[in-house]
Nucleic acid binder design. Structure first.
Lengths: 215, 215, 215, 215
DNA sequence: AATGAATGAGATTTCATTCAT
DNA sequence: AATGAATGAAATCTCATTCAT
């Protein structure tokens, strides 16, 4: 068992490195499949078997990478959190150069842009009461990031008001995402225009008094 | 020539209408229990056994009145639709005497007021893709009623604008309901204030130009 | 309770007689419905509820007339036996005047003619092992009657041969009934002709030697 | 653009093909048990639990290979069809050397010889109206094979006559099988002799004129 | 390491039959 | 006497997870 170590090490190093790459790729493929299936059917109705099939993984292998359905779910939620952070990093990088209206629009579309990757996460958080904690965490991250973005843009905005405003903006961002699910494409464009209008109206009402010279 | 009566043979998948007082009470109790359990756990995780237990019904009796989990779900959805109509009837009865701000606030709270009776319905409509039809129906009823209310209040409001505005108001109403689920009571009051502010701001922006003499 | 006996007796005699007639009619209607449903779905799949519905009877009333599913089944079997006897009575009434060929054809069609009333019976006897006794009884009645008919027609036919021949004739009669179920009407006529041919061929081969003067 | 793979999502309602030796043995054992139980009790009364118990399989394993009662039934029917073909292959291999009488006897016993493996199939086809399609298929296979055998034996037999004759022979073959179920062993031997006699008589009547030199 | 067979607790649903009103 | 509500044992089927090969 230990006598042919050398030859094996050489062979294995060549063999295993691609296998590890495979492992990383495999995890990504499984997550994608899990995302799809859970987004379509919800957590309870999604089966490990279908996720395995859709990612072209054998069920036994799936359990090697994710030791349970919950583990897979948690991985999806975590990944979504990271995506949120990345999205706000991008906004913050240019926020100082944005007008209030542009900022309003930019924020409004943020969750929508994340949507396909987030759909599963939302269904997950409905599923288990225990996960309402995760939901609060996620919500809390989003609120913090929105408030932070607002204060980067308008440093004179009071901290506590920034938090309350963030709550409302988050609701609008979710409303925006809700449009994505709607099928009625005809009425969608008018509704979209109105949602943008309201969102701008509100953010202007909050931020403009803080920028007197911009008038 | 044959004596086949097809309609008799086909099993009715809807809830049975009870014909005795006992049955009527039973149905009400079951609906209440179903509402609770589904609101708590979601459709898939809610079990007929628990609904039976919580309504102090034997499983066989439950199936007498609701010949399947779906039948129970449909009954809950239907009942919610009726509640929506009743709520708007109440608003419409006094809408002419309401200021724009009062109207904004009144609408905003409508779904929230329906909430305990509607919580299950929302979880139901997430559950099954087939039920997106029911979802659209419900949504469509709500939109129609909001638009109707707006035009009773402001007859000069254009029909097509009324529809677009309704879409946004409905989103706000749902956002309001989302507060009910949140646990973070501390921040809730400030957020609530902001949501009201935005909603009023928006509705005034829409309706005030139509009432020039009210200025 | 016993004081108004007289007036009741008079009233009841008028009232009850139609009710009894109703009872007889009701039993007939239920039997018909039971026959249909069992013939279509088989004993296990037939439900008392459907039989009640199809006979426009309330389930509680159904159980007044037939105190169980088995009781209903037994009644159907018994009625079928009576029908067999009636059918053979009719044949026997004219058997002496029949040629061998006519007798062959007459017998062949007997079960077929009984078919709609017998279909349920056959499904019943498949259903429960306990009912194979009933099956044997029925079979035995049929065999006895066929043998009897043969010996009325050809008294010189030996008793034991008559029994063996009856067994084969009964098979042919059942084969004939099997045609009724077949859907392939095109090929049916040729097949029918062949079955008749075989049946005649056989019965002539048995009976003709016993009627030397008829040649 | 979407990555939905429909074929993967749709659940396969047929029996799964096992890929390990253990699985293959298991499937065979389950089929045998299913055959027995269904033959004894009929489709509706046979329970998956009993089939599992009789094949010493846990219920979950049973459902792994046969994802439903119907799947098991279909597998049994399919296997029976294969057996029919094998049986006729055997007859056809020696049919040219058979006398008419031998051929008659050989055919007559064919279904009987298949019997224990076919008993379940016949009960299955009574069970569900939907399966009358399968019944017709099976019937059609049998008829085709009988006709083919006849024409191998007597090439001068007309095609259309061959088909009609096959229908009758098939009836006789089924009659023969019906004897197997009968318990009355005493009378069976005489009846058996008569059935053989009729069957020979008939086939001679059909085929002999086509072989004038054999007289 | 990869695979797929095994497991069984638990969910939904059915229906003959009884019985109170 | 007529009705339909109540009952619960029993059947079908699902699926996350483990483990032997």
């Amino acid at each position: 068992m230990g006598s042919n170590n050398e030859s094996r090490t050489i062979r294995d190093r060549n063999a295993r490195t691609p296998k590890r790459t495979n492992g990383i790729r495999r995890v990504a493929v499984i997550l994608k499949a899990g995302e799809e299936v859970i987004a379509e059917k919800g957590y309870e109705s999604a089966t490990m078997a279908e996720i395995a099939a859709r990612s072209d993984t054998r069920i036994g292998s799936l359990y090697r990478f994710f030791p349970g359905k919950e583990a897979l779910a948690n991985a999806l939620i975590d990944r979504y959190r990271e995506n949120i952070d990345l999205a706000f990093d991008a906004i913050d990088a240019e926020v100082v150069s944005l007008s209030v209206q542009s900022l309003a629009d930019r924020l409004l579309g943020t969750l929508l842009r994340l949507h396909p990757k987030g759909a599963a996460t939302f269904r997950l958080m409905e599923a288990r009461p225990e996960w309402s904690i995760k939901r609060e965490e996620l919500r809390s991250v989003a609120l913090r990031r929105i408030a932070q973005t607002l204060r980067i843009h308008s440093p004179r905005l009071e901290e506590s008001l920034a938090q309350d405003v963030s709550t409302v903006l988050l609701l609008n961002m979710k409303s925006m995402k809700a449009f994505a699910i709607m099928s009625d494409r005809e009425r969608a464009s008018g509704a979209l225009r109105e949602l943008h209008r309201m969102n701008r109206l509100y953010l202007e009402n909050i931020l403009t008094p803080l920028h007197p010279d911009e008038n």
